[in-house]
Write a protein that binds this DNA or RNA. Structure first.
Lengths: 198, 198
DNA sequence: GCCTCAAGTAAACAAGCGTTGACACGAAGT
DNA sequence: ACTTCGTGTCAACGCTTGTTTACTTGAGGC
């Protein structure tokens, strides 16, 4: 099957991988199809042949990424720990890797890309997570968990904000705590009798 | 001074406003200088004359916005309330308005824009806020507050994630709680049941 | 009036973009 | 051997981009 030459499957895969890496680093508008094709050692025209358009390629890239991860298997405490750990660990790879979060943030300027990302995140992240949370305002709490993930992706992985790139230990602990307060249906909400900040 | 015609000051202002609105809606790469000039009822060449380049125009737009807001005057509780309220209120204006957060998110794909935004946020938001917080890990806590702001900007204002666009009351309450837990140096960290105030 | 310089205009530049159609290759089917 | 068709190549299309150059217009100083 994999002959190395004249193999459509391998070519499509190569294009997809190159596109994912490129989108991660430069976003949808920041990279051209010629660059992607060159990185995949493939002719430009093949991008349009196999994926219809640059937009189609982006859609496919996002779709593959979203449907490939599942964090909901662990118990509630483990979920918080794993999510926090994964967040502070991301962006540490030396060689360019596909990071869906970064790719999405960097493509947030494109209107069509926004649409793809909205439905992908709502259907494959917020909604399942809300079901799993199983409490009051599960929808809002789920969305707020994604909010933290997105915020970290923006400031730490994309903008590389100095304050978020050191003291990883403290950061991870704080994130874990925040997640925990959102996983718990009560979650520090309730009456303001105690815990007063003034 | 303001004669309506052949007024350099007014022209620069018009270009800047048009640019701010355009960047808010389409991001740096999503809008052309011709569109901006047209929206400002101004010739294209004047953009480069008065701001040097499209990049210079963007820098000026961000710089003006960042140095124009200050939320740190209130006490700690009020700060949380105001920030949460401002977050859920943003993006409700009917006519196009300049929203620095949205403009930045939508421009996150551009490398030079990233640099401007990084230093602007670090110097004029995270750093002052960290000083104001005055506790252990003030830097991390400050950055995490901005993380929530950025996350909401991404998901609610840019991607318009359905889950974050309803139940505004609950959302605001939850955000306020999260902010409070980050403003408080202990902030739910450490052993359970304690919430000492400095 | 006249001169001068800032303010505004028009047109073109060079480069890049996504996309497409016509063509060459190469292996499999008969 | 010859046809067939999926695969890959090449060159160009039309369009948009940011920027610049040469030019025209307008208002104030003398």
């Amino acid at each position: 099957m994999t002959k190395g030459k004249r193999n459509a499957e391998a070519t499509q895969a190569a294009i997809l991988v190159a596109a994912q890496n490129a989108f991660t680093e430069h976003g949808f508008d920041g990279v051209g199809v010629r660059e992607i094709a060159a990185a995949a050692n493939v002719n430009v025209a093949l991008v349009n042949r196999y994926f219809g358009s640059k937009q189609g390629l982006f859609n496919e890239a996002i779709a593959r990424a979203i449907s490939a991860q599942n964090l909901l298997s662990a118990n509630r405490l483990e979920f918080c720990k794993q999510l926090a750990a994964q967040l502070v660990a991301s962006g540490t790879a030396a060689d360019p890797t596909f990071d869906p979060a970064r790719a999405m943030i960097r493509s947030a300027g494109n209107l069509q890309a926004e649409e793809v990302m909205r439905s992908a995140l709502e259907d494959h992240f917020v909604s399942p997570l809300a079901d799993w949370l199983e409490g009051d305002d599960a929808s809002v709490r789920s969305a707020l968990i994604l909010t933290l993930v997105a915020g970290v992706a923006v400031l730490r992985d994309v903008l590389r904000l100095p304050s978020l790139r050191m003291e990883d230990g403290e950061l991870e602990k704080r994130l874990e705590t925040l997640f925990a307060s959102l996983v718990d249906p009560a979650g520090g909400l309730g009456d303001v009798g105690k815990s007063d900040v003034a």
